[in-house]
Amino acid sequence: MATLLYARVSTAEQTLDHQQAQAEAAGFTFDHVIADRGVSGVNVLMKDRPEGKRLFDMLRSGDVLVVRWVDRLGRNYADVTDTIREFIRRGVIIRTVINNMTFDGSTTDPIQMAVRDALIAFMAATAQAQAEATKEAQKAGIASAKAKADANDYKGRKPSYSRHQYDQVIDLLGKGASVTQAATETGLTRQTIYRIKDEPAAAEKALAMWGL
């Protein structure tokens, strides 16, 4: 039996190190670390990713697969639910660092199975919904920024956060993290976290205005 970490980032400016560091801080140790870099969780299915394919080949019954959260497996509802259920059928135990969730196929009780499957479905749906909300916010911010630029409006102060940090904050707050937790993980001040939390559209627009 082996314990594997699967990590994924979708843009070149993001790093994988913090996913492994966060998992190790939570007490996990790994026999293998599998990572996909620059791969979209929305548009590229797990089985079509370079390291995702490798993960399917490596996992065996009794193995433990650790992910930061289910959105690292993907942000496509059907793909995430299919992937988790396939791994469970193989006898793989899936654990998340955030919220310390465990999914396995050991139970034969129909009620417990129904609760497990419903939770998987909910978490996968949340991952896709967050991706779609972020995309819409980005589109709205860009459109607004272009309109402002056309009118030669002042861009305002340059944001103290990057696009990656903004996405991280939205992601963490969406999962129920506190402002303090979000500040610690992103390296931003609590004041900045509150600004993004209270006015996400304005925070997104500021990034777009500066072309970030």
Rank of each mutant, 00 (worst) to 15 (best):
Y6M: 00
E13C: 10
E13Q: 15
E13T: 11
D17Q: 04
H18I: 10
Q19V: 00
A21T: 14
Q22P: 14
A26N: 14
G27K: 11
H32I: 11
A35K: 15
D36W: 01
V39W: 02
V39K: 07
V42K: 01
N43A: 07
N43Q: 09
L45F: 06
L45P: 11
M46R: 09
K47I: 15
K47Y: 11
E51C: 14
K53T: 05
R54N: 08
F56S: 04
F56W: 02
D57Y: 05
G62Y: 04
G62W: 06
R68V: 07
V70Y: 06
D71I: 03
L73N: 02
L73A: 03
Y77T: 05
D79T: 01
D79H: 01
D79V: 00
V80C: 00
T81K: 01
D82F: 05
D82N: 12
T83V: 04
T83Q: 03
T83R: 02
I88D: 12
I88V: 14
G91Y: 05
I93Y: 03
I94R: 05
I94V: 12
R95V: 03
T96G: 09
V97L: 09
V97P: 08
G105T: 14
G105V: 10
T108Q: 13
D109C: 02
P110V: 07
Q112I: 10
M113I: 15
M113S: 09
A114K: 11
V115E: 09
D117A: 03
A118R: 05
I120D: 05
A121P: 13
M123L: 08
A124I: 11
A127N: 09
Q128H: 04
Q128L: 04
A129M: 04
Q130S: 08
Q130E: 08
A131K: 03
A133K: 11
Q138I: 08
Q138P: 03
A140T: 15
A143R: 12
A145M: 09
K146D: 12
K148H: 13
K148R: 14
A149D: 14
A149R: 11
D150V: 05
N152E: 10
G156E: 03
R157D: 14
K158E: 06
R163F: 02
Q165V: 09
Y166T: 06
L172I: 02
G174L: 12
K175L: 15
S178M: 04
T184D: 15
G187S: 05
Q191I: 01
T192K: 13
T192W: 13
Y194N: 04
I196R: 03
I196P: 00
I196E: 00
K197W: 08
A201S: 09
A201T: 13
A201H: 08
E204Q: 09
L207W: 04
G211D: 02
G211A: 06
L212G: 12
L212A: 13
L212V: 08
